[in-house]
């Protein structure tokens, strides 16, 4: 090797050694200030907490743009799904119910542009009649207030053990219903349709809930309470925004009988059991209950 080549090599060696030392110092010995991180670097546990706070703050101030800006700092890839998933987890991990509700509400608001939702309050007197029976009720909202309290129709059902129970307040006569003031945005939801759905075989029997406001718009963050012998579960609409902002579902266990109500509603839907459907050749498969609630 001649002198000129040796000269270049030792300079290159020095450069490489220098770069290595520089990187060791910059990355290991004295990295950039650790005390000025941004929310995107938070551990997933803390990101979850941050999302809860964002959702609670949104529930308090109803400032969607601020919530959106705060969520962007977390740099989540799919913010709607992450919020909805977290809301689902919050329902089962013992978190306060208002956290799950706030997360679901924010997810729904971000996805559908749903404005602040006025949830029905528990009424002191609620006639809450079911809608008048019609030959073929549909899933559309029926904003016209009913004039008499009757049993909830469910023409598609073949289950004999189903009926709608009313709490004592709902046994007021029709005159009391007619004297009721005009419905408002905070009126309680009433059952508009109860159907057995057998169009698609399901891996497990479920009950699907759709909640619509008086204008027929899906309503997220409505709390649903389902009870059975020895158990109770709370869940919210809008936690599966891909299926609709007013949608919620719950898996039923075979052999169990469930009662369901919306928080703030006076109706208790009783006798919900696993729906068993049958193919033309007689082969059974699981179906679903579909309950549609509307604001009168």
């Amino acid at each position: 090797m001649n002198e000129e080549s040796r000269g270049s090599l030792y300079l290159l060696t020095g450069l490489v050694i220098g770069i290595a030392l520089g990187l060791i110092y910059a990355w290991l010995i004295n990295p950039l200030d650790y005390q000025n991180t941004s929310p995107r670097s938070l551990a997933s546990e803390y990101k979850d907490r941050q999302r809860v706070l964002i959702a609670l703050a949104y529930a308090a101030d109803e400032n969607l743009e601020r919530a959106r800006a705060r969520l962007e700092l977390l740099e989540d890839p799919d913010v709607y799904t992450i919020l909805a998933d977290q809301a689902q987890r919050a329902l089962t991990d013992g978190s306060p119910p208002q956290e799950a509700r706030a997360l679901g509400l924010l997810s729904a608001a971000l996805r559908g542009g749903a404005g602040p939702v006025i949830l029905p309050t528990v009424p002191t007197f609620t006639p809450s009649p079911s809608p008048s029976p019609t030959p073929e009720p549909t899933l559309e909202a029926s904003p016209a207030p009913p004039t008499e309290a009757v049993e909830t129709p469910f023409p598609a059902s073949t289950d004999a053990a189903v009926e709608t129970d009313m709490p004592p307040a709902a046994t007021e006569d029709a005159a009391a219903v007619e004297n009721n003031p005009a419905p408002t945005s905070s009126s309680p939801y009433i059952l508009d349709a109860r159907e057995q759905i057998c169009d698609t075989p399901l891996p497990r029997p479920i009950v699907e809930i759709q909640v619509l406001n008086a204008a027929g718009e899906p309503q997220p963050a409505v709390e649903v309470v389902i009870t059975w012998d020895g158990g109770e579960e709370h869940f919210y609409t809008g936690l599966k925004p891909e299926l609709g902002l007013g949608y919620a579902d719950f898996t039923l266990q075979e052999g169990e009988t469930y009662n369901l109500r919306l928080v703030g509603g006076a109706q208790i839907i009783t006798g919900l059991t696993a729906v068993q459907c049958a193919e033309l050749n007689g082969e059974p498969y699981w179906g679903a209950w579909r309950l549609t609630f509307v604001q009168p």
Binding site: G14, G18, I19, L21, G22, L23, I24, Y25, A26
Partner: peptide, 11 residues
């Protein structure tokens, strides 16, 4: 000097 330049580049 080469080492110093390398350190600067590394930093």
């Amino acid at each position: 000097i080469a080492i110093a330049i390398g350190m600067g580049l590394g930093l």
